[in-house]
């Protein structure tokens, strides 16, 4: 499955985990109708952590990270992001959403806006940044994901890998403190997976707090400081990547790893 190898080894020197709590999830449960998708999730994420969430499809990993910016509502338990608890209070929700960036499997760029407009929209309308300044910030991040020359094109004119890098830049323009990645490379051709993963590695090298749902185990080994394995809506096992891959404890994890590696 993870046939992509990265060209250079990630520089782990800047990837420091602080003891500040970024996300605190306690006793969280969620149901879709009568179906119990997430069961008793307890998870504390510290600032600077790079967490990879793995598991078979339908295990609730996407749902878990979508609860963190309340694209999905949980019914029981607490989710506290950067000191703000997620409740039905929309003000808190919008506050959390502007601090947490999200990258989707299908990019979800706005097709009617240019790349630059995609990147400046939220800073201008949510953060009230002046247009000029927002454009400068956007160009800075577009350079960082290595596509400044596409700024005035529309998303439909870009390749999948380029679109996903724009989506990352768009999230970064809001200066988020946490980034969520929901299978960011699953919809991409192998040639393009690499360019997206490299962007994510460089982000990790700058100390961004990241939660990634991905099947790219190479990325997990290279960048993550913690791998979480989920099955049937529960966290089955979590460990440092080295231990996780070389010495899995639960039978379910062993089976999963034997199938994908």
């Amino acid at each position: 499955m993870s046939s992509i190898t990265l060209d250079h080894h990630a520089d782990r020197s800047a990837m420091k985990v602080s003891d500040q709590v970024a996300i605190d999830i306690r006793g969280m449960n969620k149901w879709y109708g009568a179906f119990h998708v997430l069961r008793d999730i307890d998870l504390t994420v510290y600032e600077g952590e790079r967490i990879v969430i793995a598991g078979p499809s339908g295990s609730g990993k996407s749902t878990l990270i979508r609860c963190i910016n309340r694209l999905e509502e949980h019914q029981e338990g607490q989710i506290i992001v950067d000191g703000t608890e997620l409740t039905s209070d929309l003000k808190n929700v919008d506050k959390v959403r502007s601090e947490v960036g999200m990258v989707f499997q299908h990019f979800n760029l706005f097709p009617h806006l240019t790349i630059l407009e995609n990147c400046t929209l939220a800073p201008i309308w949510v953060r009230k940044t002046p247009r000029k300044e927002a454009e400068e910030v956007a160009m800075h991040f577009l350079e960082k994901v290595k596509i400044p020359e596409q700024a005035h094109k529309y998303p439909g004119m870009l390749s999948g890998g380029q679109q996903q890098r724009v989506a990352i830049a768009r999230s970064l323009c809001m200066m988020p403190r946490i980034m969520l990645f929901d299978e960011p490379t699953s919809a991409l051709d192998p040639e393009m997976i690499k360019e997206v993963l490299e962007t994510m590695v460089s982000l990790a090298e700058e100390g961004m707090t990241m939660l990634c749902v991905t099947h790219e185990m190479g990325f997990a080994k290279e960048v993550a400081n913690r791998v979480i394995f989920m099955d049937q809506g529960q966290i089955v096992e979590q460990n440092e990547p080295e231990e996780f891959f070389n010495n899995p404890q639960s039978e379910r994890t062993k089976l999963f790893l034997s199938q994908i590696l």
């Binding site: 910016n69 959403r97 502007s98 979800n108």
Partner: peptide, 11 residues
């Protein structure tokens, strides 16, 4: 996805 992307950006 368009609604979700807009939500996720805090609009």
């Amino acid at each position: 996805g368009q609604y979700e992307a807009a939500d996720a950006l805090g609009l």
